[in-house]
């Protein structure tokens, strides 16, 4: 798995200010109405590691999020997991659009 340690800097451009606040406790995954494969905890971990391949190999997963805000409401670190997922969506949309112009 290739990692891009400075990925958090790219995410800042998409409104994500707290990539590293999350300590992966899993409260977000427990409260999420999707109850789906450690969502959103797993994707947040990938973002922290800069595991772009893992995020981009199945980007559709990001759009499962309902943006309901329960994870953000309950996060003990105030890491704003919902906003991180939204930032990842913005990142992917931007990447799709830029790839169209190559």
């Amino acid at each position: 798995m290739a990692v891009t340690p400075e990925f958090f800097e790219q995410l800042e451009r998409f409104g994500v200010a707290k990539t590293f606040e999350c300590f992966n406790c899993g409260t977000c995954a427990a409260i999420c109405p999707l109850v789906y494969e450690h969502f959103p905890r797993k994707l947040i971990r990938y973002a922290q590691l800069g595991a772009l391949d893992r995020i981009l190999e199945n980007p559709k997963e990001l759009w499962r999020c309902l943006h309901c805000g329960l994870c953000t409401q309950t996060c003990p670190r105030e890491a704003n997991p919902g906003e991180l997922i939204l930032g990842l969506r913005r990142f992917v949309v931007d990447r799709w659009r830029r790839s169209q112009h190559v």
């Binding site: 999707l34 309902l66 329960l70």
Partner: peptide, 22 residues
């Protein structure tokens, strides 16, 4: 209130099935 449960609506354009389950 602060802990309300989503109606599933936000997913309806991407996945009506997911929206229905929620």
């Amino acid at each position: 209130a602060n802990f309300t449960h989503c109606c599933g609506g936000p997913a309806e354009s991407i996945s009506p099935k997911l929206s229905h389950a929620v």
